[in-house]
């Protein structure tokens, strides 16, 4: 998650100070990825070092304001124009856990799947409840829309996980109904030929 570009996007709307940036960042993302003020100042320091923001004076309360530079604006435009890279799949603990569970003897894979599904279903219910509240509270402002989109992203992602778990379950059932692979073959490391059956 790019805090750096998030801050640049906020500063593109006018000079702001650290605490203000934190509050506005969280208003748009519903505190899904909480930021501490320390992270904000560290990031501002790096942005300043890279010439993307510059100090923009202090107010009477001593708040130090920052403004985006031309280079910062160019960086922000390029961020919006460039797709988020998907070349390296993010490490997924659940996928790793299931890959291990089907190969380690004595693991009740169906129980692992069901336990995870219950947990993910609950998260999906909770996100949906938050979404229901967000829809009721929607005042038509852009920040409300931003929060709704973030919530819906969480909903679709969790739904995808549950669908995958359902698929794993039917795959396991299908496998259980097939004649067992001869003993010697199960000991051998998986070859590409066998993997293609998955």
């Amino acid at each position: 998650m790019s805090i750096r570009h998030g801050l640049l996007a906020l500063l593109d709307q006018g000079p702001r100070y650290g605490y203000q940036l934190r509050t506005e960042f969280e208003a748009r993302t519903g505190a899904t990825w909480p930021l501490n003020v320390g992270q904000v100042y560290t990031t501002l320091g790096r942005l300043e070092r890279d010439g993307l923001v510059a100090p923009h004076g202090e107010d009477e309360d001593g708040h130090l304001f920052y403004a985006v530079t031309e280079a910062g604006r160019a960086e922000l435009r390029s961020w919006f124009e460039t797709p988020v890279p998907r070349t390296n799949p993010p490490r997924d603990e659940l996928a790793i856990k299931l890959a291990m569970a089907v190969t380690v003897p004595g693991v009740d894979v169906a129980a692992v799947v069901q336990g995870q599904r219950k947990h993910s279903m609950k998260a999906l219910q909770d996100y949906t409840r938050l979404k229901g509240q967000a829809l009721l509270a929607d005042s038509g402002q852009r920040t409300d829309l931003a929060w709704l989109l973030v919530l819906e992203q969480l909903i679709f992602q969790t739904e995808a996980e549950i669908r995958w778990l359902d698929h794993c379950e039917s795959r396991l059932t299908q496998r259980a109904a097939e004649p067992p692979v001869p003993q010697g073959a199960t000991e051998a490391p998986a070859k590409p030929k066998r993997r293609s059956r998955l």
Binding site: Q114, R117, M121, K122, L124, Q125, Y127, T128, T158, R163
Partner: peptide
């Protein structure tokens, strides 16, 4: 699942048995 998530409780059936529920 996305539709079921509007419910207070989601119960799972398998082979005619109620196997689990999520609240």
């Amino acid at each position: 699942a996305r539709h079921a998530a509007w419910a207070d409780r989601v119960v799972f059936l398998r082979d005619g048995r109620l196997v689990d529920e999520s609240v």
